[in-house]
Amino acid sequence: MDHFRHITDYFLSYGRKSVPATQQPIGPKIKAVRINCIGDQKMFNKPDFEAVEISPTDPIFSKPDDTSDIADRIGLPIFTRRCRPNPKWANDEDNKIFKHESPFNNQDATFLHLCCDPKAKFDLSRGVIGWAWASRQWQNSVGSVIIVRQDKKPLFPLHAEALCKYCHHEIRALLAHSIGEYSPDEPLTKDAVLAMICRPTFSIYWYKLLEEKSKEGDRTALGTPFPYDIDTIEEGRTPS
C-alpha cells in the first residue's frame, strides 16, 4: 500500500516545477529615464532623454550614486546612477562626430546636480565644491545617467527634460546671482534663492515647456501627465 502511495504521489507531482524564491515575481518594472551623454547621442543616435524600465529591486534604490537637491526642494525626489561608458565611444574620443566635445559630456546631468545646500563646504577630498556648483563627479567624465523617482512612480522623458532644463535655465541663474556673478547687483541671499526653488516655479516652467512643445508639433509631449498628478495614471498605461 505504501508503494502505491509513493507512485500516486509521483504522478501527482510530475510536471510541476517549483520556483525558487529568487525567481518569484518581484512586481512590475519601474519607469525611469536615461539621460544620454554626447557619446551615446552621437554614436548610437540616442535621444537626449530616453524612456527605460528598471526592476523595483534595482541597486539604484538602495545604493544610488546621488540625489538632486533641486528635485528634493520641488517635491520630486529622485535617485541617480551613472551608466558604464560604452567602449565604442569611450575609446574613440577623438572621433570627428563629437566635434571636439568629450563624448562623456552630459550637461543635463551636471545641472541636475547643482548644490543647494547652504551649509555645504568646499572639500576637495570628496569632490565637493559647495553651494551653486555640481560636485566634481558630475562635472568630469559623467557619461549617461539613469534617473528614477524615489517613490517609484512613473518618470517620463518629458518629466526628466523639464527637470534638467529647469535646473539649467531657471535655477542656475539664481545660484549664479547669489555668488556674485551679476555684479554690480547685490547678490541674492541663499534663503532668497531657496525660497524660489519650489513646486510653483517648477510648475510654471513645466507649462512653459509644454507650450514650446506644442509650437513644435510634439503631440507625445502634450499627452504626458503633470508630474504631480502621476497617481491618476492607470497601472501599466502610458501617455498617448
Rank of each mutant, 00 (worst) to 15 (best):
I60A: 13
R84C: 06
H113Y: 02
D151P: 09
Q107V: 15
W133V: 05
A176Y: 10
A195H: 07
N91I: 08
N105R: 12
H168K: 12
Q137R: 06
R73M: 15
Q137S: 03
D65Q: 09
K121S: 13
A162L: 03
R81L: 13
N140Q: 03
S144F: 02
H159R: 09
L158M: 13
F111A: 02
I60Q: 10
E101W: 14
A162Y: 02
D151S: 09
H169T: 10
P56G: 07
P56M: 10
D69R: 07
A160Q: 00
I147L: 13
L194E: 08
A162K: 02
N86G: 06
S62N: 15
F104K: 07
H100D: 15
F111T: 02
A195Y: 05
S135E: 14
D58F: 09
W138Y: 08
A90V: 06
Y166L: 08
Y182A: 09
L194I: 07
Q150R: 07
F122R: 15
H100P: 00
C116V: 12
A132R: 08
C115E: 08
A176W: 05
D151L: 03
P59I: 11
L188V: 05
I179E: 01
V128F: 02
G180M: 03
H169S: 15
A90E: 11
R82G: 08
D151G: 04
K99R: 15
K119W: 13
E186N: 07
K121M: 11
W138I: 05
S102K: 10
D117Y: 08
T110F: 06
A195I: 03
D123P: 06
P59H: 10
P56I: 12
I60E: 12
L175T: 01
F79N: 11
A195E: 09
L155S: 12
S178R: 01
P187M: 04
C164R: 02
F156R: 00
K152A: 06
L163G: 11
P187W: 03
W138Q: 05
N86R: 15
Q139T: 04
P59S: 11
R136A: 02
R73L: 15
Q137M: 04
C115K: 07
N86Y: 12
K190Q: 14
T189F: 05
F104H: 14
I171N: 03
D191I: 04
W133C: 09
P64C: 10
K63L: 09
Q139L: 06
G180L: 02
F61H: 14
A132V: 00
L112D: 05
V128C: 11
L188D: 04
K190N: 05
L155K: 10
D185T: 10
I147M: 12
R136M: 05
T80E: 06
D123C: 12
C167G: 05
A192K: 06
V145W: 01
I146S: 06
S183P: 00
F156N: 00
E101P: 00
D72R: 14
V128H: 08
D66L: 08
P157D: 05
L175G: 00
A173G: 06
I179S: 04
P64S: 05
Q139M: 09
R172P: 00
V145F: 01
R172T: 02
D191H: 00
K152I: 12
S183A: 13
D123L: 12
S125H: 11
Y166F: 15
D92S: 15
N105L: 14
G127H: 01
L174I: 00
